[in-house]
């Protein structure tokens, strides 16, 4: 559905994107995470046809949008992080204006606008002026505008940025509903936990490079592999330490009362064999496993490694 391959972009001497690649399948919600200035907005602007890339390719539904920039406008619905609305226009007029931009007029436009406003729970606001809407309502209005012409992919840059908890929740609900009806989406945020609840796949970008990409479980497993094994030794601590010191895969050993932290570079099978060996030595263990990251520490760990 969407294939971004080796995307590059420089602003003078500053390298904004240094070979970003990722794939989004149809109906998937792809979470694009990274700290501020990592290259999320640049990638999205290129995908929306607002910026020219310096290299690489972006294919959406088989169309190379960098070579055919005009075609992108029918394929992508873009919602920027910051955007304004026109004063002196009502919600319905704002929607009908954009409908006319896509060649939809009259009754058909009115019907389509009402449908899309209903999708984002904004139908009751159709007679309000757009400049008096709250930020959350403006975000949803912008989303409804993107849905007017049924684009192949919705590209949303920080859709929950600056929203209060309630508006954030409402936005998440709307995105979930869109995912349920099979809309393909690329959603960016600098907060991983915000996306982890709704996205099927996540890509973490840092300093213009894609650091890791995959489902959240895959990423967690991949990163957890580098965490130490934590075990709680009930009896036989000295025997356990002596045994661990003999193992080649063991890099570090540290203890804290009954807890032992083992820097171990083996696979999951090796971890199981290590446990078997310890038990064979007569060591009594009540807890055993890799230390787990929460989402925020995972994000910090990944982005720090790159630095």
């Amino acid at each position: 559905m969407v294939d971004v391959v080796d995307l590059k972009k420089n602003y003078g001497n500053f390298v904004a994107l240094n070979g970003v690649s990722f794939h989004i399948s149809e109906g998937e919600m792809y979470g694009f995470v990274g700290p501020n200035g990592a290259g999320k907005t640049t990638t999205m602007k290129i995908m929306a046809g607002l910026l020219a890339a310096d290299g690489g390719s972006v294919e959406i539904d088989g169309v190379d949008i960098l070579r055919h920039p005009k075609k992108v406008k029918q394929l992508v619905g873009y919602m920027p992080d910051f955007f304004g609305v026109y004063d002196n226009l009502k919600v319905s007029e704002y929607m009908e204006f954009f409908a006319s931009v896509y060649g939809i007029y009259g009754k058909e436009a009115r019907k389509r606008c009402q449908e899309k406003l209903d999708v984002v729970h904004m139908l009751e606001k159709e007679d309000s002026f757009v400049d008096v809407l709250s930020r959350g309502q403006k975000q949803r209005l912008c989303l409804a505008r993107c849905l007017l012409y049924q684009p192949k992919i919705l590209v949303m840059d920080e859709p929950a940025f600056g929203l209060d908890p309630r508006a954030r929740y409402e936005m998440k609900e709307v995105l979930r509903e869109l995912m349920d009806v099979g809309v393909t989406m690329l959603v960016s945020s600098h907060i991983l936990s915000e996306l982890s609840e709704i996205c099927t796949t996540v890509g973490i970008i840092e300093a213009g490079k894609m650091v890791v990409s995959g489902t959240l479980d895959e990423i967690m497993t991949k990163v957890n592999q580098s965490n130490p094994i934590v075990m709680e030794v009930v009896d036989g601590l000295e025997k356990a330490i002596a045994f661990l010191k003999e193992k080649e895969d063991v890099e570090t050993i540290s203890t804290n009362e009954q807890k032992v932290y083992v820097g171990f570079r083996g696979s999951q099978k090796d971890e199981a064999l290590l446990l078997q060996g310890l038990l064979g030595q007569g060591v009594l263990i009540s807890q055993y496993g890799r230390a787990e990251n929460n989402l925020e520490s995972l994000f910090m760990q990944i982005t720090e490694k790159e630095e």
């Binding site: 406008k73 992508v76 920027p80």
Partner: peptide, 13 residues
């Protein structure tokens, strides 16, 4: 300045 231009430029117009 109103940040409405980008939205217009992403339309087929």
């Amino acid at each position: 300045e109103k940040q409405t231009l980008d939205i217009l430029l992403t339309t087929p117009m």
